[in-house]
């Protein structure tokens, strides 16, 4: 069922312009090599959903002109400062921003996981986040004796979940460890593309210690090997964020020309070594 792509570029070939693409937050395994492949291909008008926040990935995709709509709860480079291309795009109104709050994105994807049309969620009432999201409805809790308004969030069903994980096996099972957000994303999405550090020969589901941290190959459409695939972000328990590179990014991306120079140097030039 799972295809093994010959390259990361091949793996992302099915992510078409305008698709609803869902990606994880920084600590979960952000597929940066695959993101660069998407930019090299010149992807456009993505509806990017980041569960529940994003950093370099959204900033890079936005700066490269690949995003039409962004739905997330925050974009920041964290200790490296504000996300400059995101900030500029919102100020220029060159993307449609759908502001959310973290648990709303979790809940909307969980609705998709369950195949139900919406999920109720506490909070939000009286916020301007709710005021700017006409598709989010407030209903009276039908099970309450007293007046109890509650927000309903329509399910988010991504066309593609794009993930990075440490290991896959030959059957397409992917070991995600404790990064359960990756499972939520994959369950919710119509298809899942995963880049991995390496492929192992034994079956990951056969090991009772690893099996609970496995995204079964049943959900996975395509896998490509991308060693250091989160770089310059880190992969928890495997490698740290490349702080020097992130500082360089923050400095260059502060201006349009600097960002173009960054793209030319680190993104648009294919890496010499095939992965």
């Amino acid at each position: 069922m799972t295809q093994f792509a010959a390259s990361v570029d091949d793996a992302v070939a099915d992510i078409a312009d305008g698709m609803l693409l869902a990606v994880p937050r920084e600590v979960s395994g952000v597929p940066m090599e695959a993101t660069r492949a998407l930019i090299r291909r010149g992807v456009r008008r993505l509806h990017l959903v980041a569960l529940p926040t994003s950093s370099l990935q959204a900033d890079l995709l936005i700066g490269a002109g690949g995003v039409g709509t962004l739905e997330t709860s925050a974009v920041s480079l964290g200790e490296f400062g504000a996300a400059p291309r995101f900030t500029q795009a919102v100020l220029n109104r060159s993307i449609v921003m759908k502001d959310a709050t973290c648990p709303a994105i979790h809940a909307a994807l969980q609705a998709a996981e369950k195949g139900v049309p919406f999920m109720p969620m506490r909070g939000l009432i009286g916020s301007d986040i709710l005021a700017t999201r006409p598709e989010w409805q407030v209903i009276a809790n039908p099970y309450a004796d007293n007046h109890d308004p509650i927000v309903l969030l329509p399910a988010i069903v991504p066309d593609v979940a794009l993930l990075h994980a440490p290991l896959a096996d030959r059957d397409g099972n992917v070991w995600i460890g404790r990064q359960r957000d990756l499972i939520t994303l994959s369950h919710a999405a119509r298809s899942t593309i995963v880049t991995v550090e390496r492929v192992v020969d034994d079956n990951l589901l056969a090991d009772p210690l690893r099996a609970p941290g496995v995204l079964p190959g049943f959900y996975v459409d395509s896998i490509a090997v991308a060693e250091n695939g989160c770089w310059p972000l880190g992969l928890p328990d495997h490698y740290d964020t490349d702080a020097a590179h992130m500082k360089e990014y923050a400095r260059l991306a502060a201006s349009h020309d600097g960002f173009e120079a960054y793209l030319a140097r680190y993104v648009l030039t294919p890496r010499a070594k095939a992965s």
């Binding site: 529940p52 926040t53 997330t72 709860s73 925050a74 974009v75 920041s76 504000a82 996300a83 995101f86 900030t87 919102v90 100020l91 109104r93 502001d99 959310a100 709050t101 973290c102 648990p103 709303a104 969620m121 506490r122 909070g123 939000l124 916020s127 301007d128 986040i129 709710l130 700017t132």
Partner: peptide, 27 residues
């Protein structure tokens, strides 16, 4: 306010975003 200064549709300053505040602040 973790979102923006000025009009939301044409902000003067943009912050990262609301994170989990619109739930945690209530509960």
């Amino acid at each position: 306010n973790l979102v923006a200064i000025g009009d939301y549709d044409a902000p003067k300053v943009r912050f990262p975003g609301s994170y989990g505040s619109a739930h945690l602040y209530y509960v």
